[in-house]
Design a binder for these strands. Sequence first.
DNA 1: CAAATACATGAACACATGCTCATGTATTTG
DNA 2: CAAATACATGAGCATGTGTTCATGTATTTG
Lengths: 127, 127
Amino acid sequence: MTHLSPTSGPDSPEEGLCSERHAANPAAAGPLAVTEAQRMAEFLNVLADPTRLRLISLLAAEEYCVCDLASNLGMTDSAISHQLRALRAARLVTYRKVGRQVFYQLHDHHVLELYQTVREHLNEESA
Amino acid sequence: MTHLSPTSGPDSPEEGLCSERHAANPAAAGPLAVTEAQRMAEFLNVLADPTRLRLISLLAAEEYCVCDLASNLGMTDSAISHQLRALRAARLVTYRKVGRQVFYQLHDHHVLELYQTVREHLNEESA
DNA sequence: CAAATACATGAACACATGCTCATGTATTTG
DNA sequence: CAAATACATGAGCATGTGTTCATGTATTTG
């Protein structure tokens, strides 16, 4: 600690006591508890991969089967299948089976919005 | 490929030709090129860490010096300093030196908005 | 039924990442 | 100036991650 600003307690942010904090920003919802930070990091980690981002960018336009995704990205079916597994686990995509093919699509507009938000933010701040 | 849908070329998405694609979503801007996907993934990777997310959640409210951030998260100054270095490199925070202390704050409202967007999206989809 | 196709999955390896520990650099204090 | 403080940083290590390779499972085709 600074030994100058005796603010609240040293730990456990989830224990509340937003007493004198005033939360300069109302929408901030206070400091993140460890567990929530972990869940948030896990989710972001799914997005934070070039291959998975490219998959999402393709699925943002239309439905694709695994082998088409693979050939579009110039990667093996296996590699793509592994990544789709991760996207499925994170509930970012859904799939439907047609014969021996499996067509993937984005789970909902939520995913698309988040993806686009990040992409736009990155294109703007090329300062 | 599917051998059924002869869509465009197999690779190099940046070569354009948004000919018959129509880009279902105007803001989607088509499939991600490899380089852009990498830059996007690098940026998201900075956010995708529990410690850095908690740092951001603290800085969302007010300015903090390193040792206060450390004691708030119950971690060593060194660990926090390393993470702040990553946040600095990603231009997510700025700092100002006062004596021997260094006060960090979020770089701009952009960062706060992105953080809050992700946090809200995660709280909603607790299906 | 046998072969081929489309996809899934486990193991393994190369590589990246976050922390600790030791050390270095300003800045302040005695 | 010497000691202490606040922070930065490099090395090292444990752990996690993405791909390849081999193999397994449905489904279709001959």
